[in-house]
Nucleic acid binder design. Sequence first.
DNA 1: AGTGAAATGACCCGAGA
DNA 2: TCTCGGGTCATTTCACT
Lengths: 151, 151
Amino acid sequence: MLDTIDKKILKLLQKNAKLTIKELAEELNLTTSPIFERIKRLEKEEIIEGYVALLNAEKVEKGQVVFCNVSMPIYTKENIDSFEKIVQSMPQVMECYHLAGMVDYQLKVFVKDIKEYDSFLKKMAEIQVVKVHSSAIVLHNVKYSTVISVD
Amino acid sequence: MLDTIDKKILKLLQKNAKLTIKELAEELNLTTSPIFERIKRLEKEEIIEGYVALLNAEKVEKGQVVFCNVSMPIYTKENIDSFEKIVQSMPQVMECYHLAGMVDYQLKVFVKDIKEYDSFLKKMAEIQVVKVHSSAIVLHNVKYSTVISVD
DNA sequence: AGTGAAATGACCCGAGA
DNA sequence: TCTCGGGTCATTTCACT
């Protein structure tokens, strides 16, 4: 499905989506046309999901990351759907995973500071179908990457 | 520091970095020049950290997400530096946070399947300065976003 | 699947309000 | 800070290998 050239294109575009087709072509010893066609194919097959700008969270006053662990005491389809919809609409929640383990869900939340996280927790408390189990405050970010290894 | 127009530009580029300056200009009822200048300023001030392509993890055979929680029994500067460097060099580790709480670090790991996670755990076991405390398998992804709310 | 060339369109900059 | 306009460069398509 993906040959060596495709993988190299994906590796490079994951690091820098602003690389021109010409630059990619030079790097991979090809002309622009095949690179162009390959990128279009990777987009069409949705291997490339999109291109986004990444911001510095601290510089936009969302530098505090907190993980919020919640459980769902009454585990029904209605409660699952309801909770997941709410979470998807909350802009502070960057990520949410349904886990196999002690807690049912883990939310990664971006806030300005702990005070703002306190407000967030109050909103969570209003969601009847889940109970906040615990919070884990991030002291510092060791690694954040969007680059998936395609080797 | 950021006015309404800057915030709108950031909001749009976080969703789709392929928007042309012309399209942004039309959306915001301006000409291309001010949009161009503003984007250059946001890049220079590193509010925009970069532009990346996002891939579909399942389609590149990295569809299994696992959170790996580790603790560091002997908490010294040397051990911290050593561990953080190793983590940063591991391509399976997408994210790693130093936490205030029961466990010291949480790693978000992308693997093909549980078998591949088993191999990963064996590598973690070789790192002398940390002990794997627990793993949380992701059943499904409820939300994943790179868009930070700048309102 | 690749090259090369030509048209289309985006980026980028300077002059002026 | 903005508009307008033009030169330069990247993207996209196509005929051919």
